[in-house]
Amino acid sequence: MASKRKIATCSLAGCFGCHMSLLDIDERILELLELVEFDRSPINDIKVIRGMVDIGLIEGGVCNAESVHVLQHFREHCRVLVSVGECAVTGGIPSMRNHHSLKACLEESYIRGIGVENAHVPDDPELPLLLDKVYPLHEVVRVDYHVPGCPPSADALWYVLSALIAGRDPRLPTALLRFD
């Protein structure tokens, strides 16, 4: 048997719904595991990609310094990088905060919000700083393919993955194309 393809996945400013959708491929996951090996992924809790992987799947938008670092790490270690889901593709629901200044968001959460005690904006150096806005992935690194949807359906994800593994064009047919 040919060597398995390596896959890495992660979620940035997302809800893990895209990962849930990936698990929704049901019994096809057995087929998938015959073909691929998971490197860094929340599914196996591996934190860092070792060496190069063939396919990187990222859900969620870019919201802070850490998401930039993780995204850049993926770009450096993935031969093909796929933006998965509305948040990754457009900024999505988290980018609704872009309607407000960062100051307003933080004050609402940590200063003026209901039930806030010891009101101050968290400034621990351990915490990644927030970007002024939530951005889609392709504004930060080069992205090879996009799979829109909230989340993309299991069928759409299966279509893209199986196409990439088989070396086919992974762009979705109209029937699987959804933004919601």
Binding site: A65, K103, P122, D123, L130, L131, D132, V140, V141, R142
Partner: peptide, 27 residues
């Protein structure tokens, strides 16, 4: 590829709000 926006400048507002300027506060 070059990012669509200035990554470090996008942290400026947060740096001001947290009064941070450590290495991790830059991109």
């Amino acid at each position: 590829f070059a990012p669509a926006f200035d990554l470090d400048a996008a942290l400026q507002e947060a740096r001001q709000l947290t009064d941070r300027d450590d290495a991790a506060a830059h991109l």
